[in-house]
């Protein structure tokens, strides 16, 4: 029996309580992502891109609505907040692998290699530079195999060469997977995605081509 893989957002609403009222960030997002879809979502600063990614990833609960996950969805990749300073890169790898039920022994070489940490892989994270942390975070995100990757583009850092490497690892080696990329820049969305959205007034609007999405987005 073939299990159908998809991810569906049904009327997602998210409110934040702030001083002096309620900020309605998402006001009813409906989105169906099939396996292999590469979703690009353009949105201005503060339009709720990151909130949307977090809700898709299950980091945050929506105020209303439902997320149906019938794919293995990643956490928003390259997240660095989960590092405990006194743990080494290696410890963090083991932790992530245990959480996701993957044998860590198979992943050590890959993460060590990809993150370019060398001997620092076995040193506490608190001794890392910002770049080293970012590389470790990215390497850990792709060490686990997911069917759908969530990318908040603002969060992806590192120098140019490393970014190229990430791009190759994600967009070439894993191009058959699903992706959700949110950004305020056209770069990756234009070149890589096959469905285009603009997040606007708390809802997503789909456009048939990137050019149309970009035109609408630029007029905002």
């Amino acid at each position: 029996m073939k299990v159908e893989k998809y991810l569906k957002l049904e009327n997602i609403k998210k409110n934040f309580r702030i001083r002096g009222g309620i900020n309605r960030v998402l006001r009813g997002v409906n989105l169906e992502i099939r396996y292999g879809d590469r979703i690009g979502i353009l949105g201005r600063n503060g339009s709720g891109k990151t909130t949307l990614v977090k809700i898709i990833g299950g980091v945050m609960k929506p105020t209303e609505g439902k997320v149906i996950r019938r794919m293995k969805v990643s956490w928003p990749i390259a997240f660095q907040g989960g590092f405990q300073g006194s743990l080494t890169g290696f410890d963090n790898l083991r932790f992530i692998c245990r959480v996701y039920g993957v044998p860590w022994k198979d992943k050590v070489e890959f993460v060590k290699e990809f993150s370019e940490l060398g001997r620092y892989f076995y040193e506490p994270v608190k001794t890392y530079s910002a770049g080293m942390r970012a590389r470790l975070a990215f390497a850990l995100s792709i060490a686990i195999d997911f069917e759908c990757y969530l990318i908040d583009e603002v969060a992806v850092v590192g120098d140019r060469r490393f970014q190229e490497k990430c791009k190759e690892e994600l967009f070439e080696k894993r191009k058959d997977r699903s992706f959700v990329i949110v950004s305020h820049q056209p770069s990756h969305i234009k070149n890589f995605c096959n469905r285009f959205f603009v997040l606007f007034e708390g809802r997503t609007v789909e456009f048939p081509t990137f050019e149309e999405a970009w035109k609408f987005y630029s007029s905002l």
Binding site: S86, L87, R98, V99, G101
Partner: peptide
Amino acid sequence: KIQLRVIYALMMREIITRYG
């Protein structure tokens, strides 16, 4: 199964964090 796995991972993490 997932929950037991997660609890185990957290315990191992805590042991290393606290006692090195």
